[in-house]
Every structure is written in structure tokens, then in C-alpha cells.
């Protein structure tokens, strides 16, 4: 593929986005249109937040935007990271015992379809309004799916892989760490990326309904203050942040965990 051809998706994607933003800006700058107040264009909501030095909140309680972004990112990455490790450990342990797999697989399939948002009330009751709640919600949204994926990846591992390792002298522990783990990582990570959107939405909802900071809280603050600029700004930051994280995860998948079994 030539360089121009490889850049085509990015050029077309950015072009479409720029076109929509331009159209939004054009329609929104007309004044008096309902769009201007309900969906203020980027120039308006960005300048509105810039006036306050990109600090969100009222008076002395105002916090820098970076702090909100950092809070949300911490919650998402902590929840996803813990779920990723826990799912691989659980999957590995379950794969060692057929009976354990038979006992626990139905439970995994019952819990996996429960939307992470559904865990919010329970989490607030158990953990209170804290980072633990948000991390827990992200964890619950990703963990069961990833455990099922880990089991599936282990099952579809070619028998030759472990046979050869054992043949060359590797014991069960080495076979697991040197062969099974690297073999299943890309598949499990791909599913982690697929489920990132669900985790991202879950943490934002948690921030909107309970937690007092983070990107989700910006939107609630905008609603409470009848500040459409702040709402639009929050939505834009959430969209851009989500996009950046998804690109980051895609980059890890293609550059670090690139192999396929």
C-alpha cells in the first residue's frame, strides 16, 4: 500500500469531521436560530470555557479541565486494567479444571449481559461516592466478557503450541507464561478495546449521577447551571477523549500485540 493510500482513511475521516464542524459553525453563527442556544457551535462553547481559563465549576470550587480528564481516565484505565488482569487469571485458573469451568461458565454468561450502568446503584450503596465506585463499575462492565474471551482463546489455542513447549523442556508454569499467555493476549486485548466504549459510557454515567468530578460531572454541572456551552464543551471533550483512547488502544493492538494465532 502506498503512503497516500494508507493515509486515505485518515484524510477522509478528518475531512468529513471538518465539513460537519464547518456546517455547524455556519448554522450556529446565524444568531437567533434555536440551534445557537441549544447546540452552540464550537467557537462559542470553546471561547466560553476559555474565558474561565479552562477551569470548570463555580468560584473557589472550580477545578482545571485537566483534572476532570485525569479523574475520568484514571477510573477507566484502572477498571479496565484490573479487569484485564483478573479476567486472564480467572480464565487461566478455570482452564485448569473442567469441573470449575462447567460450574462457573453459566454464571459468567448470566452476569456478562448486565450493562455496567445497572451496577451503579449497588456500587454507590456499597462503596459510597468515590473512585472505587467508578472503578468497580468499569470493572463489572468488562471483567465477565473478558473472562469468557480468555477461556475461548485458551480453547482455540493450537495443541501444537503447548506440545512443542513441553517437548523442548518447558514445565507447566513456563508453558503458561511463555506460550499460552502471549498467545491469548492479542485476542483478549481486542475484546478489551471493543468493550472500552461500554466502560467509557459507564464511568461517565457514574460521574453524572453520583461522583462530583470527572468529564461526566461537567455535563451535569452545565445542566444545573442552564449552561449549554458547558454541556456542549463536556460532550466534545468526552468525544475527543474517547476517540484518542480508542486510537491508543488500536495502536497497542497493532504495534505491541500484533500477532494472530
Amino acid at each position: 500500500m502506498t503512503r497516500a493510500a494508507s493515509l486515505a482513511p485518515a484524510i477522509f475521516g478528518a475531512g468529513t469531521l471538518a465539513l460537519l464542524l464547518g456546517l455547524w459553525e455556519y448554522l450556529g453563527s446565524g444568531g437567533g436560530v434555536a440551534l445557537t442556544s441549544v447546540l452552540p457551535p464550537p467557537s462559542r462553547f470553546i471561547s466560553s470555557v476559555a474565558e474561565s481559563g479552562f477551569r470548570i465549576g463555580l468560584g473557589s470550587q472550580a477545578a482545571p479541565l485537566a483534572q476532570s480528564i485525569a479523574s475520568t481516565f484514571f477510573r477507566v484505565f484502572a477498571g479496565m486494567g484490573i479487569a484485564f488482569v483478573a479476567a486472564i487469571v480467572t480464565g487461566a485458573l478455570l482452564s485448569l479444571s473442567k469441573v470449575a469451568t462447567w460450574c462457573l461458565t453459566p454464571l459468567l454468561y448470566v452476569l456478562a449481559p448486565i450493562a455496567p450502568i445497572a451496577w451503579i446503584p449497588t456500587a454507590i450503596v456499597v462503596f459510597g461516592i468515590s473512585n472505587v465506585t467508578a472503578v468497580f463499575i468499569v470493572f463489572m462492565g468488562v471483567y465477565f466478557i473478558l473472562t469468557i474471551a480468555t477461556l475461548a482463546e485458551i480453547r482455540r489455542l493450537p495443541e501444537e503450541f503447548t506440545t512443542i513447549a513441553g517437548n523442548l523442556g518447558a514445565g507447566p508454569v513456563d508453558r503458561w507464561f511463555r506460550v499460552v499467555l502471549p498467545a491469548i493476549l492479542p485476542g483478549v486485548f481486542t475484546l478489551l478495546r471493543t468493550n472500552f466504549i461500554a466502560a467509557w459510557m459507564a464511568v461517565l454515567v457514574a460521574e453524572m449521577v453520583g461522583l462530583r468530578d470527572g468529564l461526566g460531572a461537567i455535563i451535569m454541572m452545565g445542566r444545573n447551571l442552564f449552561n449549554n456551552e458547558l454541556i456542549m464543551f463536556g460532550m466534545a471533550i468526552i468525544g475527543v477523549s474517547g476517540f484518542i483512547v480508542d486510537r491508543l488502544l488500536a495502536m497497542i493492538a497493532t504495534r505491541v500485540l500484533w500477532w494472530r494465532i
Binding site: 493450537p158 501444537e160 503450541f161 506440545t163 512443542i164 517437548n167 523442548l168 498467545a183 500477532w259
Partner: peptide, 18 residues
């Protein structure tokens, strides 16, 4: 049981892609 004195080479899936 298998032993490291006897090593098997298969038709495919021999190498670790990573």
C-alpha cells in the same frame, strides 16, 4: 509421556508468532 529427548515437528503451527 513426552520427553525432551524426543522432539516433534508438525506440519504447521510450529513457531511462536510473537
Amino acid at each position: 509421556a513426552p520427553t525432551s529427548d524426543i522432539v516433534m515437528i508438525f506440519q504447521e503451527n510450529n513457531l511462536y508468532p510473537w
